[in-house]
């Protein structure tokens, strides 16, 4: 989650006392441009059932256009995850503005629900450690 719009949006959900799933954990980076695909792989390896990368809306990135770069990386990452047998729904990239507290809450709640229907991620044993090879 980038430090600017999306983190502020999540804070807004807090100030508005909305409900956010307790099994969602935010990792703050300065910008989605910093989100190395390895971070996502690492999360899956550590037992996450889903990962969502949240940034500012396209055009609003605090650092100009890094979220477009994140978008490109995400596409490539999805192709890689497919090879590992990880469903696309488990790794999303989305955008939240600083004002969208409700949008944030809805988005992550929806994602948690979707992943619940998919069930826990059962990573094949041979893919363990893959993140370290990349």
């Amino acid at each position: 989650m980038c430090n600017w719009c999306s983190y502020a949006g999540a804070d807004k959900a807090g100030t508005a006392q909305l409900r956010v799933p307790h099994n969602l954990s935010a990792i703050r980076v300065m910008c989605t441009g910093r989100v190395d695909p390895q971070f996502v792989l690492k999360a899956f390896r550590e037992g996450a059932d889903g990962v969502v990368i949240l940034g500012c809306h396209l055009g609003d990135c605090h650092y100009k256009e890094q979220n477009y770069r994140a978008l490109q990386r995400h596409r490539i990452l999805l192709a890689m995850l497919r090879q590992l047998g990880i469903e696309e729904e488990r790794c999303r990239l989305d955008f939240v503005s600083a004002a969208e507290g409700e949008g944030f809450a809805r988005l992550v709640t929806g994602m948690v629900e979707a992943i619940k229907t998919l069930g826990p991620l059962d990573l094949p044993v041979h893919s363990h450690g893959l993140d370290q090879k990349i």
Partner: peptide, 8 residues
């Protein structure tokens, strides 16, 4: 400015 894009 420390956005970190080059790092990744």
């Amino acid at each position: 400015v420390g956005c970190g894009t080059c790092v990744s």
